[in-house]
Design a binder for these strands. Structure first.
Lengths: 235, 235
DNA sequence: GGCAAACGAGAGCACTGCTCTCGAAAGAGA
DNA sequence: TCTCTTTCGAGAGCAGTGCTCTCGTTTGCC
């Protein structure tokens, strides 16, 4: 097909684009998004800073590319964790998923901050980021589906009222018809809890002597599994 | 006392310091911390940018001052909410607390981001910020104390294991001896949930059609109250 | 009244994102 | 193979940033 025939110029462009993203990602990992500098990237690559604008029209565009890559990397890890967990054990799947998200965040703190931290003022996430961003959420949905037929809620879900009821049942119909709406709403709670914990831990915002370290994380993951009604693992 | 006798110079210095913080807070509220510029503040105040360094040795120091003020403002709102709620109704207190934190965050999104968003790389929170930062957490502890004698946990707390058990019981002994350690650990969960929800909502990071709007927030607050074992309000 | 500390203003340094222009290189069509 | 258009890299330049240094002035204490 025609796309396979690439001129030397096209190949050079793709490679240099990759090269730029690679160096930018390196600087991002070391210094954070705040200190990521186009000029420094260009300097490191031995090119004029103005030449870099042939590849990324602005700093925001370069950041967007990094964001998409990061969402995909995280999404892939999450999907892999869920798919390699014991298939019939939704609690183990949830454990694997939350652990994977947390460890990725710890290994790539600045990229995590780029995804789930303070948004850059004036920056609006372009639509290309939506699909990659949804992958992690879909992995959680997958866990809920795996446990859909044998959830044992220890506590009845508070009735969903008003718009929330419509939104949640619409979401359920759209993405996981076999999942009970009440369970799905608890999935949102678990989802929030997971990212809340990771953000607190990574950004160092939890006050006091109890840092949300391994112990708190593991404990809360189990409490959330109970909250979701995921059946106990049978070892 | 001697401190009351202030020279004209001291008074001018205090007033100008206040003036600088006020203008900085204005710019922070409009543009975010990222775009807060010392030169712009000086320009707006009709002074040379170098003169500003007589009052704040660096941009980080100015930010620190704003952070402390913000923590105190939020803490005050939280304390007020708890203290004006029906004294014998811990669930109402929890509702009031979470609502106060959320509405403050919505009214001061950039200041909230400064407190609970991505930390500025290279910036270490100085010890002066610890006490103001703890005020909100202490307000939550206050709620737990109010309900300490009649919590009705619908679900047994998973046993705390390892270091977590020590940390939590140490915290309990230190700050709220009458609060059960298991309940305290669930307080940490509720705390994380609260700030996770607010951050998701404010930073627009929750994926899909279910935005954590009023409905989801109110619903989750009640679910968390159940989770904490707070007795039902008797209207 | 003298003197040291505090202060305001200006110039300047090194850096940033971004634009514009100009000459060289590469690919497509004749 | 020879044009001709598009693409590209480099340099200069603009407006902005945090921060430092110097220099003359003002203020308050002894």
């Amino acid at each position: 097909m025609a796309a396979a025939i690439r001129t030397a110029r096209e190949r050079a462009r793709e490679e240099l684009t990759r090269e730029i993203k690679k160096e930018a990602r390196r600087q991002l990992a070391e210094e954070g998004a705040q200190r990521l500098s186009l000029r420094a990237v260009a300097r490191e690559l031995g090119m004029a800073s103005s030449a870099l604008y042939r590849y990324f029209p602005s700093r925001d565009d370069l950041l967007t590319a990094l964001i998409i890559d990061a969402y995909n990397a995280l999404g892939e890890r999450a999907e892999h964790a869920v798919s390699t967990a014991p298939p019939g054990d939704p609690r183990a799947m949830w454990r694997a998923l939350s652990g994977a998200v947390r460890s990725w965040a710890q290994q790539h703190p600045h990229e995590y901050a780029l995804l789930y931290g303070t948004p850059v003022p004036g920056y609006a996430a372009p639509p290309e980021t939506v699909a990659p961003a949804a992958r992690v959420a879909l992995a959680l949905i997958e866990v809920l589906r795996a446990g859909a037929d044998r959830v044992e809620l220890a506590t009845p879900v508070r009735p969903l009222r008003g718009i929330l009821a419509e939104q949640v049942s619409a979401l359920a119909a759209q993405v996981a018809p076999e999942v009970n709406a009440g369970v799905l709403s608890r999935g949102l709670v678990a989802w929030t809890q997971l990212f809340g914990m990771i953000s607190f831990e990574l950004f160092g915002h939890l006050v006091g002597s109890v840092t949300p370290a391994d112990g708190f994380f593991a404990h809360t993951v189990e409490e959330m599994a109970d909250f979701l009604g995921l059946p106990e693992s049978t070892p």
